[in-house]
């Protein structure tokens, strides 16, 4: 078993319930292939950096899991068939340093899941999200420089 991170982008044209159902189905694909989901973190609806299949936005969902390396091909094949997915990215966390970072991210995701939901991007209408979040990236940018 090895630690993997799956980032999936679900189509924005679906309703909130359909997105949740789709995410459930994606997690089901991982568990049915012998994977074990450690944590999940929904990043919510956000604008894509470039249009994918003529969609300007997408629902980001990150799944941290521990999967047997041989099962990855099958999981990715199933993702490719799924028409509700715009894009998926699978990242392997293998070396000691990466595993430490992986555990840190898992902790963060779990904490975020436990904490009372301040902002629920799923429930909100997708058109209203940008105004709220504009302040956060400016702060991180300043810190980076």
């Amino acid at each position: 078993m090895r630690n993997y991170e799956n980032l999936v982008i679900v189509k924005p044209t679906l309703t909130a319930e359909e997105i949740q159902a789709s995410v459930k189905a994606i997690e089901e694909v991982i568990t049915s292939n012998g994977g074990e989901i450690i944590a999940t973190s929904p990043m919510g609806m956000r604008k894509l950096a470039y249009p994918i299949e003529k969609n300007e936005r997408g629902f980001y969902h990150v799944i941290y899991s521990s999967i047997a390396p041989s099962a990855i091909t099958e999981i990715e094949r199933r993702f490719r068939i799924n028409e509700e997915l715009l894009r998926f990215v699978t990242i392997k966390y293998d070396t000691n340093r990466e595993i430490a970072a992986f555990n840190g991210m898992v902790e963060k995701a779990k904490k975020a899941a436990e904490a009372p939901k301040v902002e629920t991007p799923v429930a909100e209408a997708p058109t209203e999200t940008p105004a709220v979040e504009t302040e956060a990236p400016a702060a991180t940018e300043a810190a980076a420089e």
């Binding site: 982008i9 604008k47 894009r87 990215v89 940008p130 504009t134």
Partner: peptide, 22 residues
């Protein structure tokens, strides 16, 4: 993962790009 663009054309170049990415 479509978090950062591959390229931008002349029309798309903006001063603070990550502000309107969200």
């Amino acid at each position: 993962a479509a978090l950062v663009p591959y390229t931008v054309t002349r029309k798309q170049v903006v001063v603070a790009p990550f502000e309107n990415l969200k």
